[in-house]
Design a protein around this nucleic acid. Sequence first.
RNA 1: GCCGGUAUAGCUCAGUUGGUAGAGCAGCUCAUUCGUAAUGAGCAGGUCGCAGGUUCGAGUCCCGUUACCGGCUCCA
Length: 583
Amino acid sequence: MKALFSDGTVAETNEELKVVRHTCSHILAQAVKRLYPETKLAIGPAIDKGFYYDFDREGGFTPEDLEALEAEMKKIIKENIKLETFTKPRAEAIEFMRELGEPYKVELIEDLPEDSVISFYRQGDFTDLCAGPHILYTKGVKAFKLTSLAGAYWRGNEKNKMLTRIYGTAFLSKDELAEYLTMLEEAKKRDHRKLGRELGIFTMMDEGPGFPFFLPNGMVLKNTLIDYWRQIHTREGYVEISTPIMLNRHLWETSGHWDHYKENMYTTVIDDTDFAVKPMNCPGGMLVYKYEPRSYRDLPMRMGELGLVHRHEKSGQLHGLMRVRCFTQDDAHIFMTQEQIPSEIKGVISIIDEVYKLFGFKYHVELSTRPENSMGSDEDWEIATKGLKSALDDLGLPYVVNEGDGAFYGPKIDFHLEDSIGRTWQCGTIQLDFQLPQRFEAEYTGEDGEKHRPIMIHRVVFGSIERFIGILIEHFAGKFPAWLAPVQVKVLPVSEKSHDYASRVYEELKASGLRCEIDRRDEKIGYKIREAQLMKIPYMIIVGENESANGTISVRSRDRGDLGSAKTADFITEIKEEIEKKA
RNA sequence: GCCGGUAUAGCUCAGUUGGUAGAGCAGCUCAUUCGUAAUGAGCAGGUCGCAGGUUCGAGUCCCGUUACCGGCUCCA
């Protein structure tokens, strides 16, 4: 799998590593067949960070089985078995796998063309359907580890049987494997669910699965992001609206959500009428557009909305702030003429790029095309898809195409951010929509005095403020830059003797608009510093009798340690500059 | 939703083959008035996720259920 990034880099795929991992998956399958011969084999490819193999075995496997399998795999590697390839015509290959009692392999071969020649790999007592390539001897696998167990549907389809997937990884040397395992441990430490609780940002309660509670520090973060969002959107000519959280069934029937999205919507009845809690903001935005007659002079009309949407996501897929059941989209709908499509799309891409760069994120772009369950004419889909493509091409932005992955009302460009463990999260999206304006019969009066239908863009930059905060927590490991930090400065008096002076400093900092706290507890200074440090507060102001006597403060930076003494006013000027620059 | 796992104090975790719950940190009180990542002592804190069952007796065993964790599928 290749990932193209915004900065033009391509995630390198190390071919040698891939081959070793693939061979390692065969060694795993061989070990499974030796220890648990009744197991049926599915597939076992090399993946981004390792490999997996799917098995069908009554009762699956346990973590203890993994240990036994690792031991058996080591044995196989030590035996240094030669891997040999051979081929068979399709019919014979099917018969061969049938004799070996591998129904999944038979199914795989049956899907190949009639005249194909099927290749196999044999290593001692084990043979697998495989296109290769592989390393020559099992001893070539120098360092591997089985990492986890998981369920996985046969061929990735939830209608099929759930198999047991064993994940593992392999590297070219023991050192590289150890380095990778350490990296996983480090990633765990910055898990946003752990840091979210420790830093008082958010929490989840049993009473509302998937509905996050924002704590005081989290609200500061959220509001700061929103302030920034408003600032750049105002600059870019957006207006802001807010539409109701619940609207009646008629609206959702008009928009198509009642037919296409019902299983994800929360519904209720008010005065005998069906209502749905909005899963998207667009129908509400549409109503605002239609509220008064529009002229071509009003277009493009960029209408933003920080909309709280609710979606009934399946329980098993909730994940901290990354996947929730209610979230705030930094939405905007742009109404425009067909001629304005390219420039508007470019405008949105440029905002997204600006925002992601500010946080130092790497991202890659995907273009998703028409899905099966879609609305609208072939022609509209073609124009819309072409519009998105040409904008990306004009900007020279690299992208991959996901055929059939678009929204039911139009194609989309997705922006995927990479997190600390290398997972990617869909954040920004730009979706072009001809359907909604038609369904709602939206119009504008053209220069010619005739009624015309506007085209609509749906777009988000953060995607979901909640998810974006989750990603930020992991990205910064909780060490937010000063402009985002919930508490920017903490004043730490050395002892009670300096409380008065410390309080004056604290008041001065507060009056200057900084987010600050003071720690007046009867604890040693080392203890207070340790705690402020653990809360990842960017600046600590230490004041004792020396400072009190000289009218100064001692500044300690979270990242750079003791910075020595300064005048309060000078410190304020400096930190404000840092905040202003969003450094 | 599906497969597998977990659930003990605010947090991190002990709890032997079933015999009525324990530590560290946090909290509170007192002492201490301290100089750049943990001062000391004392106190308090739990119907062991919830609901059934087995048993003389269940945190421990069984069934159900809820939430969470790792994945699958789906997605902002």
